[in-house]
Computed example of a mutant assay.
Amino acid sequence: MRAEPPLPWLEPGDSFPTPYTAWGPHSPAPGLLAAGGSLDVASLLAAYRQGTFPWFSDGQPILWWSTDPRMVLAPTQFRLHRSLRKRIEQRCVKQPTWHIRIDSDFAQTIYHCANTPRQGQNGTWIVQAMQEAYTDLHQAGYAHSVEVWEDSRMVGGLYCVAIGKAVYGESMFAHTDDASKVALAALVGLCLHHGVDWIDCQQNTRHLASLGGAEMDRAEFLAHIATACLQAPLVWQFDPVYWNALYQLTRQ
């Protein structure tokens, strides 16, 4: 195993190292870029604009990552499986019992993402400091929630970061079967409507790959977000006609 250079320690307000200095694939923590710093809005925006994101657990300092390759989901490559299309048509279109809301309760969404148990996972990386930081980012207009509601109960949802047309998926949850997938499909529909090229998924998982996610070289990803971050932001509202764009995708 090749020895990596010492991990940079950031004081609040320090600039981030270039992503290309992140630890490599044969290190103990591939993609680890720096530690320390702050989770304030300015720091988070600076990080995301250069493709860097925080990820750490209770008892650890803030850890900053820039993974290579990067997992992304192109909205045009989203796999609308027959079962998911059927769920959307039954629950959201023909006789709607599920309703998509955007940013109606960001705090509840990130709370559920942090606290909903997941098979094979103990604890959460969305620690209290992260919940507070992304809630501040939401209030500043750069973090958004896509929520699935049944009557007065949120049954699923996700939250993401968006700077211009650069959209970074963070986490999702479901309290009812397929509710998180429906939230993701709604985000994909919104991104299709606004011409978003890629939704960042950070790291490869089998679940994301099954929905159309694919790995991308970090250099290509960074070149993309450098342009996307400068574009006009999305209008964060969901119109049911966005489902129609999903129906045009290849179905499997």
Score class of each variant (00 low, 15 high):
His26Ser: 13
His193Cys: 10
Asp177Pro: 10
Arg101Gly: 06
Ala35Gly: 12
Glu132Lys: 15
Asp40Phe: 07
Ser43Pro: 01
Val235Lys: 11
His99Trp: 04
Asp14Leu: 05
Trp55Arg: 08
Ser27Lys: 00
Cys92His: 08
Leu187Gly: 06
Pro8Ile: 12
Phe238Trp: 14
Arg2Ala: 09
Trp98Val: 13
Gly37Asn: 12
Gly189Ile: 07
Pro117Tyr: 03
Asp151Ala: 14
Leu32Asn: 01
Ser43Glu: 10
Ser15Trp: 04
Gly13Phe: 02
Ser66Cys: 08
Leu32Ala: 06
His144Pro: 02
Tyr168Pro: 06
Ser104Gly: 01
Ala46Thr: 02
Gly212Lys: 13
Ile199Met: 15
Ile102Asn: 04
Gly157Asp: 05
Cys191His: 02
Tyr168Asn: 14
Cys92Tyr: 06
Cys92Ser: 09
Ala46His: 05
Leu137Asp: 07
Lys165Ala: 06
Met1Cys: 09
Gln237Gly: 06
Pro240Leu: 09
Ile163Ala: 09
Pro75Asn: 08
Gln248Asn: 09
Val41Asp: 00
Trp23Val: 10
Arg218Met: 09
Thr18Pro: 14
Gln90Lys: 15
Tyr247Phe: 15
Arg2Lys: 13
Ala185Asp: 08
Val146Thr: 15
Ala34Gln: 04
Ala143Tyr: 05
Met1His: 12
Val155Glu: 04
Ala107Asn: 10
Leu84Cys: 00
His112Lys: 07
Trp98Met: 13
Ser27Pro: 02
Thr250Ile: 05
Pro69Tyr: 04
Gln77Asp: 13
Phe53Tyr: 14
Phe106Ala: 15
Ala42Phe: 01
Gly164Lys: 09
Phe106Arg: 12
His112Glu: 14
Arg49Phe: 02
Asn115Pro: 03
Leu211Thr: 03
Pro19Asn: 10
Tyr168Ala: 13
Thr135Lys: 05
Ala47Arg: 06
Leu190Pro: 12
His175Trp: 13
Pro5His: 12
Gln252Thr: 11
Glu11Ala: 15
Ala47Asp: 08
Gly189Val: 08
Val41Thr: 15
His194Gln: 11
Leu184Gln: 07
Asp103Ser: 09
